[in-house]
Design a protein around this nucleic acid. Structure first.
Length: 246
DNA sequence: GCGACAG
DNA sequence: ATCTTGTCGC
């Protein structure tokens, strides 16, 4: 891989804006070699949800992570940061558009969460390098993905009851699951990102599921970055333990 | 060439 | 993703 591209992979201040899709593909193939999907061993005490909110026709992005206690799933902190991107949304290359902003928000967190759930995929991706896997390999964080729509692979519709699921396969291998997180509601697509197994991602997703279709981490992340975009919450790192007291 | 296509 | 009203169901 060319030096310039290699720097893109490991540089703290990632700048993906000038990449061509061909170069982006090379980076994904390079990162794939660093994927680790061994079972997650440690005990989970905190889990974060990561997401971004956009304004139509604007390069401004509002990124953030919300950290929840686990297994209680109560929001305890959030990190919000405003950034910009010109990298377009192209299916299969979401990471290049969103990671720079989310990375800024992540670096602003004093005590990192035990794992991060992304609004997007992990290895449920044509090159097994969705945004969750990409972020995990670049930062070394434990990550997983939760997408609202299928990006790749095939699957049989899971049963209608909450908790039922079906494998999503591609080229003969299981790359994730279509999970029914709510009765009679479209499934979400779960897959490991980095430093955890397929089974881990499924188990964690189910433990993070409450009354809604989206697991609590990504549900809160979506809610907070949206409030951030509309001005209801300011940029920065916020301790939420005090907020919800009154 | 045709269909699929995270946010 | 975001822009939007009503509507169906628990």
């Amino acid at each position: 891989m060319p030096d310039a591209l290699n720097r893109m992979v490991v540089t703290p201040e990632l700048n993906y804006d000038q990449l061509t899709l061909g170069e982006a593909t090379l980076i994904q193939q390079q990162l794939r070699g660093h994927l680790r999907l061994e079972p997650f061993q440690k005990e989970i005490k905190t889990i974060a949800g990561a997401d971004i909110s956009l304004t139509l026709y604007s390069e401004t992005v509002f990124a953030g992570l919300v950290i929840l206690s686990y297994p209680e799933l109560q929001p305890i902190a959030c990190s919000l940061v405003q950034s910009s991107t010109i990298f377009p949304y192209v299916p299969g290359y979401l990471a290049f558009r969103e990671i720079p902003a989310i990375l800024k928000a992540y670096e602003q967190i004093p005590v990192k969460p035990d794992l991060i759930m992304f609004d997007g995929n992990g290895i449920l991706h044509a090159r097994r390098m969705g945004i969750a896997s990409h972020f995990g390999v670049v930062t070394g964080a434990v990550t997983m993905g939760c997408a609202k729509k299928k990006l790749a692979g095939q699957y049989a519709e899971p049963g209608a009851s909450k908790g039922e699921y079906a494998n999503v396969t591609d080229k003969g291998e299981v790359i994730g699951y279509a999970v029914r997180t709510k009765e009679n509601v479209k499934p979400v697509f779960i897959s490991p990102g980095h430093q955890m197994s397929l089974e881990d991602s499924l188990a964690i997703a189910l433990k993070c599921t409450g009354k809604h279709r989206l697991p609590e981490p990504t549900r809160y992340a979506h809610e907070y970055v949206n409030k951030f975009r509309t001005g209801e919450i300011k940029a920065g790192y916020h301790d939420l333990s005090s907020w919800k007291l009154f």
